[in-house]
């Protein structure tokens, strides 16, 4: 794990930046990124451009390992790079919800394209996850910290 302030952490204010840490992807994980937002007790998952069964499986493994190791409560999916998604993407969001809801955590999804938004609406997961346009809004809503 290494501290890195070049990625999405830079979008936020300095307080958030102090306690954020980006985990670079391992070999074979594409360009998926995970960022720990300590202040918000949230893991930000930023999938690569294609979110299918293949990439969903990699997100699932890395995210659950990190959640267990860090004790973070909440998850935010950064969908800004996602150009393609199928029901495996819905599955991975639902799965993280199941993981964190037992410890009182919440899941947010933000930065969706109209196409991703259509799939999310079709699936009915809007009932259980928070949707937002921006990173800051997603973090505040998911953690209750402003």
């Amino acid at each position: 794990m290494r501290i890195n302030n070049r990625g999405i952490a830079r979008e936020l204010d300095k307080t958030a930046l102090v306690c954020s840490c980006e985990i670079p992807p391992r070999k074979g994980e594409g360009n998926m990124e995970m960022t720990i937002m300590g202040k918000y007790r949230t893991l930000v998952i930023r999938p690569d451009s294609e979110l299918d069964q293949h990439t969903a499986e990699k997100i699932r493994q890395s995210a659950d390992k990190l959640l267990k190791k860090t004790g973070l409560k909440n998850v935010a999916f950064d969908m800004r790079r996602v150009r393609f998604m199928d029901s495996s993407g819905i599955g991975v969001i639902m799965g993280r919800y199941r993981t964190v809801c037992t410890i009182g955590g919440r899941v947010a999804v933000f930065g969706m394209s109209p196409y991703v938004e259509r799939l999310v609406s079709m699936s009915g997961i809007r009932e259980i996850v928070i949707t937002a346009d921006r990173l800051q809004d997603a973090l505040e809503e998911v953690s209750g910290i402003c």
Partner: peptide, 11 residues
């Protein structure tokens, strides 16, 4: 148990 969404055929 595999966190499938059950949405495949519907989609």
């Amino acid at each position: 148990e595999d966190e499938r969404s059950g949405m495949g055929f519907t989609i």
